[in-house]
Design a protein around this nucleic acid. Sequence first.
DNA 1: GGAAATTTGTACGTATGTATT
DNA 2: CAATACATACGTACAAATTTC
Lengths: 224, 224
Amino acid sequence: MLKQTKRLTLVEQVAEQIEGLIASGVWAVGTKVPPEPELMEQLQVSRNTLREAIRALTHAGLLKTRQGDGTYVSSSSALGPVLKKRILRSNWLETLEVRHALEKEAASLAAQRRDEEDLERMTYCLEQSKLAVDNNDAHAYARWDVEFHLAVASSSRNGLLIELYDYISDSLQSILVDMFNEVPFHSFHHNHVQLLEAISEQDSAKAVATVQQYIHETQEHYRQ
Amino acid sequence: MLKQTKRLTLVEQVAEQIEGLIASGVWAVGTKVPPEPELMEQLQVSRNTLREAIRALTHAGLLKTRQGDGTYVSSSSALGPVLKKRILRSNWLETLEVRHALEKEAASLAAQRRDEEDLERMTYCLEQSKLAVDNNDAHAYARWDVEFHLAVASSSRNGLLIELYDYISDSLQSILVDMFNEVPFHSFHHNHVQLLEAISEQDSAKAVATVQQYIHETQEHYRQ
DNA sequence: GGAAATTTGTACGTATGTATT
DNA sequence: CAATACATACGTACAAATTTC
C-alpha cells in the first residue's frame, strides 16, 4: 500500500494543521491568529473551508473569535474545555470524588518517582501555605493548596493523570475557596506536611493514607 | 439589564440545538440525520451556517459524515471522543494507572452505595468469567472482566466517575485482550470474587485492598 | 461619529462521492 | 454496468454586524 488516499476532508486537514500549531506552542494561548484573508492565502483554501475549520476548533474550545476584533487561541488542548463543560453538568461532590481518586494515585506515584526538584517545589508551596494560615487568609491558602497538590500530581510523571487532575482542580477552584472560608483550613496544614514527609521518604502507603485522612477530615466538616 | 444581547452566534445556536437532540436521545447513536436542505428549512438558516454547525459537531466526534451518503450520529457525548484521542497519544501504562485510580475509588464507593440489583449484575458477570476461565477463553474473559468492572463503577453512583472509567476502559479494551493472552487470567478470578464479597459486605477498605492486590499482581506479571 | 479592519451570515454554482435503479 | 438521483465538498461573491481607533 502506497498511501491511504486523501481520506481527510480539506477542512479536517486545515483544522489538524492549526491544532498542530497550537499544540506545539507555535501559537501559544493568547496569541491572535492571522485574519481570514491571510490564512486563506497561506493555506490556499477558500473562505468557507477555512471558516469551517476555525469554527470546529472554536467549538472545541481551542479558539475564541470576536467579531470585529479577531480570533485568539484560548486553550492548548481540547480535553480541558470539554472536561470543564462536562463538570458544569455535574455536582461538585461527584467532581470532588473523582479528584480524590486521582489525588491518591498521584500521591502514591509521586512517592515512587519524585526527584529533589519536586520536593523543593512542594516545600515552597507549604511554606506559602503556612504564611496564609498565619495570616488567616483563606484565598491565599486555597491558591497554595491547589499549587501544592499540582506539584504532587506533577511528580507522578503521568501526563494523562496530571492533565485530568489539573483540569478538574481548575473547575473546582471557586468551590475550594468557598470551602476554606467555612472550614478551619489551618487544620489541613499538618496533613500536608505529613504528605510531603511521606513522599520525601518514598513511602507510597503512608502518602495514600495521609491523603485519605485529609479527605476524610474535609468530609467530616461537611457532614454537618 | 433587560437581556444579554444574542451573544451566541447563529452557528453556535444551531450546534447547541443539535447537541441537545443528541444528548437527550432524540437522535440516538447510529441515527441518520436529515439532509442539509431539510435542516436548512427546519432551522431557517443558510447552508453555510448549517454546515459550520455540523462540521463543529463532526470535529468533536458527535457526528460522522460520509460524502454522497449522509451524516450519522456517532457518539452521544463529546467527552468520550476527546478522551480517546488524548489517550492515543498516551502510553498504555499511563492510561492503566489512571484507570486504576478510578477503579479503587469506584470500588470504595460501590461498597457504600450498591443495591441488590448491582450485586446481582456483578454476580452474573463473575459467573460468565468463571465459564471463560474453565474454557480457557481469553477473549471472553476480557469481555466479562471489563463488564464486571463497569458494573462496579456503575454502583458508585458517580456519573462523572462512571463516564471517565467507561471511556478509558474502552480505549484499553484491545490492550486488555492482549494482556489476558499472555497472563494466566484464571489467577484473577479469585480476586474478583473477593472484591464482590467486600462490596456485598459494604466493606470499603477491603474492597480497595482487593483491587490494589489485583493491580499489584498484574504488574508483577509485567515486571519481567 | 466616521473609517478601517474583522468576523458573521447568505446565496448560488460546480465538483465529487455514494446508493439506487 | 451504466445512468440517474441524491448527498456532501469546495469555491466565489456580496451584504451585514461589531470592534477598534
